[in-house]
Amino acid sequence: MTQPQHDAQTPNLPEDEAAEVSVEQQLAEQVELLSAELEQLRAQVLLERADLENQRKRLAREVDSARRFANERLLAALVPVFDALEAGLANASETDPLRSGVELTLRELTRATESNGLATLAPAPGDPFNPEHHQAMSIVEVPGVPPGAVAQVFQKGYLLNERLLRPAMVVVAKAD
Protein backbone atom coordinates (compact mmCIF):
# COMPACT_ATOMS: atom_id res chain seq x y z
CA MET A 1 0.00 0.00 0.00
CA THR A 2 1.27 3.41 -0.84
CA GLN A 3 1.17 6.28 1.55
CA PRO A 4 -0.51 9.45 0.47
CA GLN A 5 1.80 12.18 -0.50
CA HIS A 6 1.58 15.40 1.49
CA ASP A 7 2.09 18.93 0.31
CA ALA A 8 5.18 20.70 1.38
CA GLN A 9 2.95 23.05 3.40
CA THR A 10 1.13 20.29 5.30
CA PRO A 11 3.27 18.96 8.09
CA ASN A 12 3.48 15.24 8.59
CA LEU A 13 1.58 14.71 11.78
CA PRO A 14 1.12 11.40 13.36
CA GLU A 15 -2.39 10.07 13.09
CA ASP A 16 -3.17 10.66 16.82
CA GLU A 17 -2.21 14.31 16.64
CA ALA A 18 -4.36 14.81 13.50
CA ALA A 19 -7.35 13.23 15.23
CA GLU A 20 -6.75 15.40 18.30
CA VAL A 21 -6.66 18.57 16.17
CA SER A 22 -9.83 17.44 14.40
CA VAL A 23 -11.62 16.91 17.74
CA GLU A 24 -10.39 20.28 19.01
CA GLN A 25 -11.59 21.91 15.81
CA GLN A 26 -15.03 20.27 16.16
CA LEU A 27 -15.25 21.38 19.80
CA ALA A 28 -14.28 24.93 18.84
CA GLU A 29 -16.98 24.96 16.14
CA GLN A 30 -19.54 23.65 18.64
CA VAL A 31 -18.51 26.34 21.15
CA GLU A 32 -18.95 28.99 18.46
CA LEU A 33 -22.38 27.61 17.51
CA LEU A 34 -23.47 27.45 21.13
CA SER A 35 -22.17 30.97 21.78
CA ALA A 36 -24.11 32.29 18.79
CA GLU A 37 -27.24 30.46 19.97
CA LEU A 38 -26.75 31.86 23.48
CA GLU A 39 -26.47 35.42 22.12
CA GLN A 40 -29.59 34.90 20.05
CA LEU A 41 -31.48 33.64 23.12
CA ARG A 42 -30.23 36.60 25.17
CA ALA A 43 -31.47 39.00 22.51
CA GLN A 44 -34.81 37.21 22.39
CA VAL A 45 -35.13 37.38 26.20
CA LEU A 46 -34.35 41.11 26.13
CA LEU A 47 -37.01 41.69 23.45
CA GLU A 48 -39.57 39.68 25.40
CA ARG A 49 -38.67 41.54 28.60
CA ALA A 50 -39.07 44.89 26.82
CA ASP A 51 -42.39 43.76 25.34
CA LEU A 52 -43.61 42.67 28.77
CA GLU A 53 -42.56 46.00 30.27
CA ASN A 54 -44.40 47.88 27.49
CA GLN A 55 -47.52 45.81 28.10
CA ARG A 56 -47.28 46.51 31.85
CA LYS A 57 -46.96 50.26 31.23
CA ARG A 58 -49.84 50.27 28.72
CA LEU A 59 -52.05 48.36 31.17
CA ALA A 60 -51.15 50.81 33.95
CA ARG A 61 -52.11 53.74 31.66
CA GLU A 62 -55.40 52.06 30.77
CA VAL A 63 -56.20 51.38 34.42
CA ASP A 64 -55.36 54.98 35.32
CA SER A 65 -57.51 56.27 32.46
CA ALA A 66 -60.39 54.01 33.48
CA ARG A 67 -60.08 55.24 37.06
CA ARG A 68 -59.92 58.90 36.05
CA PHE A 69 -62.92 58.70 33.71
CA ALA A 70 -65.03 56.03 35.45
CA ASN A 71 -67.44 58.67 36.71
CA GLU A 72 -67.74 60.46 33.35
CA ARG A 73 -71.36 59.44 32.76
CA LEU A 74 -72.43 60.49 36.25
CA LEU A 75 -70.71 63.87 35.99
CA ALA A 76 -72.09 64.43 32.49
CA ALA A 77 -75.56 63.74 33.88
CA LEU A 78 -74.97 66.39 36.59
CA VAL A 79 -74.05 69.14 34.10
CA PRO A 80 -77.74 69.98 33.37
CA VAL A 81 -78.29 70.22 37.14
CA PHE A 82 -75.62 72.95 37.22
CA ASP A 83 -77.40 74.72 34.37
CA ALA A 84 -80.75 74.53 36.18
CA LEU A 85 -79.36 75.78 39.50
CA GLU A 86 -77.51 78.66 37.81
CA ALA A 87 -80.63 79.60 35.81
CA GLY A 88 -82.65 79.53 39.02
CA LEU A 89 -80.16 81.84 40.71
CA ALA A 90 -80.10 84.20 37.71
CA ASN A 91 -83.90 84.53 37.86
CA ALA A 92 -84.32 84.62 41.66
CA SER A 93 -84.55 87.94 43.40
CA GLU A 94 -82.14 88.84 46.19
CA THR A 95 -84.98 88.64 48.72
CA ASP A 96 -86.20 85.19 47.67
CA PRO A 97 -85.98 82.92 50.75
CA LEU A 98 -84.96 79.93 48.60
CA ARG A 99 -82.00 81.73 47.06
CA SER A 100 -79.57 80.95 49.89
CA GLY A 101 -80.55 77.25 49.76
CA VAL A 102 -79.96 77.12 45.99
CA GLU A 103 -76.60 78.91 46.41
CA LEU A 104 -75.55 76.43 49.10
CA THR A 105 -76.66 73.48 46.96
CA LEU A 106 -74.72 74.83 43.97
CA ARG A 107 -71.58 75.38 46.11
CA GLU A 108 -71.72 71.85 47.55
CA LEU A 109 -72.38 70.31 44.13
CA THR A 110 -69.46 72.28 42.69
CA ARG A 111 -67.15 71.20 45.52
CA ALA A 112 -68.14 67.52 45.16
CA THR A 113 -67.72 67.46 41.39
CA GLU A 114 -64.43 69.41 41.44
CA SER A 115 -62.98 66.85 43.86
CA ASN A 116 -63.82 64.23 41.20
CA GLY A 117 -62.03 66.08 38.39
CA LEU A 118 -64.78 68.29 36.93
CA ALA A 119 -63.68 71.82 35.99
CA THR A 120 -65.78 74.67 34.63
CA LEU A 121 -65.04 76.35 31.29
CA ALA A 122 -66.43 79.85 31.64
CA PRO A 123 -64.67 82.18 29.21
CA ALA A 124 -65.09 85.89 29.86
CA PRO A 125 -65.98 88.34 27.12
CA GLY A 126 -62.75 89.36 25.41
CA ASP A 127 -61.03 86.00 25.98
CA PRO A 128 -59.67 84.46 22.78
CA PHE A 129 -61.90 81.89 21.08
CA ASN A 130 -60.52 78.36 21.57
CA PRO A 131 -62.08 75.86 19.14
CA GLU A 132 -60.91 72.98 21.34
CA HIS A 133 -62.99 74.23 24.30
CA HIS A 134 -65.61 76.54 22.78
CA GLN A 135 -68.45 76.05 20.35
CA ALA A 136 -69.29 79.18 18.36
CA MET A 137 -73.03 79.71 18.19
CA SER A 138 -72.76 82.84 16.05
CA ILE A 139 -70.41 85.58 14.92
CA VAL A 140 -71.40 89.19 15.50
CA GLU A 141 -69.85 92.63 15.33
CA VAL A 142 -69.24 93.88 18.86
CA PRO A 143 -67.58 97.24 19.41
CA GLY A 144 -64.71 97.11 21.86
CA VAL A 145 -64.21 93.32 21.57
CA PRO A 146 -61.27 92.20 19.43
CA PRO A 147 -62.04 90.00 16.40
CA GLY A 148 -61.86 86.30 17.16
CA ALA A 149 -62.59 86.85 20.85
CA VAL A 150 -65.54 85.65 22.90
CA ALA A 151 -68.24 88.31 22.90
CA GLN A 152 -70.87 86.52 25.00
CA VAL A 153 -71.23 83.17 26.79
CA PHE A 154 -74.52 81.29 26.32
CA GLN A 155 -73.60 78.24 28.33
CA LYS A 156 -70.59 77.17 30.40
CA GLY A 157 -68.52 74.22 29.32
CA TYR A 158 -66.93 71.50 31.42
CA LEU A 159 -63.68 69.52 31.48
CA LEU A 160 -63.26 66.17 33.22
CA ASN A 161 -59.62 65.65 34.17
CA GLU A 162 -58.58 67.94 31.30
CA ARG A 163 -60.76 66.07 28.77
CA LEU A 164 -63.60 68.06 27.22
CA LEU A 165 -66.96 66.94 28.60
CA ARG A 166 -69.04 69.76 27.11
CA PRO A 167 -67.80 72.79 25.14
CA ALA A 168 -68.73 76.31 26.25
CA MET A 169 -71.29 77.77 23.85
CA VAL A 170 -70.21 81.28 22.89
CA VAL A 171 -70.76 84.17 20.50
CA VAL A 172 -67.58 85.25 18.72
CA ALA A 173 -66.76 88.81 17.72
CA LYS A 174 -65.89 89.55 14.10
CA ALA A 175 -63.97 92.46 12.63
CA ASP A 176 -65.81 95.80 12.49
Rank of each mutant, 00 (worst) to 15 (best):
G126W: 02
E37R: 11
L118T: 06
A66E: 13
E132Q: 12
S138W: 05
D16F: 08
L85R: 01
A77R: 08
P123Q: 08
D64F: 09
L89N: 07
A151L: 03
D176M: 10
E17W: 04
V142P: 06
P143I: 08
Q55C: 09
V145S: 09
T10C: 14
A173I: 02
Q5T: 15
V45E: 15
H6Q: 14
D64R: 08
P146N: 15
V21P: 08
L13F: 00
E29L: 15
V140C: 03
A76H: 10
E29M: 15
N71C: 06
E86W: 04
M1S: 15
L59D: 01
A70W: 11
P123S: 04
V142K: 04
E86N: 04
D64M: 09
A84L: 07
S100V: 15
A119R: 00
R111V: 08
L160E: 07
L13N: 04
A84G: 06
D127W: 02
E114K: 14
L98F: 02
E39V: 12
V63K: 07
L106N: 09
A87K: 05
V63L: 11
G101T: 14
L47M: 12
A136W: 05
D83K: 01
V102F: 05
Q30N: 00
D7I: 09
P131F: 01
H133S: 03
V31C: 03
Q155V: 03
P128W: 01
P97C: 05
E48P: 08
T110P: 02
T2I: 05
G148D: 01
A124F: 02
E32S: 14
L98N: 13
L89S: 09
S100F: 07
P97F: 03
S65R: 11
A19D: 00
Q25L: 14
V21E: 02
V140L: 10
L74Y: 08
N12V: 15
P167A: 09
N71R: 07
A76Y: 11
P128E: 04
L75D: 00
L165V: 13
E114D: 14
A119G: 03
E141T: 07
S35Q: 15
A8K: 11
S22M: 14
L118W: 06
P4Q: 14
E72R: 00
P125I: 03
L78T: 05
G101D: 15
G157K: 07
R49C: 07
S93T: 11
L121D: 08
L85T: 02
F129K: 01
S138I: 05
V153K: 05
D16T: 09
G148H: 05
Q3N: 07
V79L: 03
T113I: 06
E103R: 06
P80E: 05
L52V: 10
Q30L: 00
P128L: 03
V102A: 08
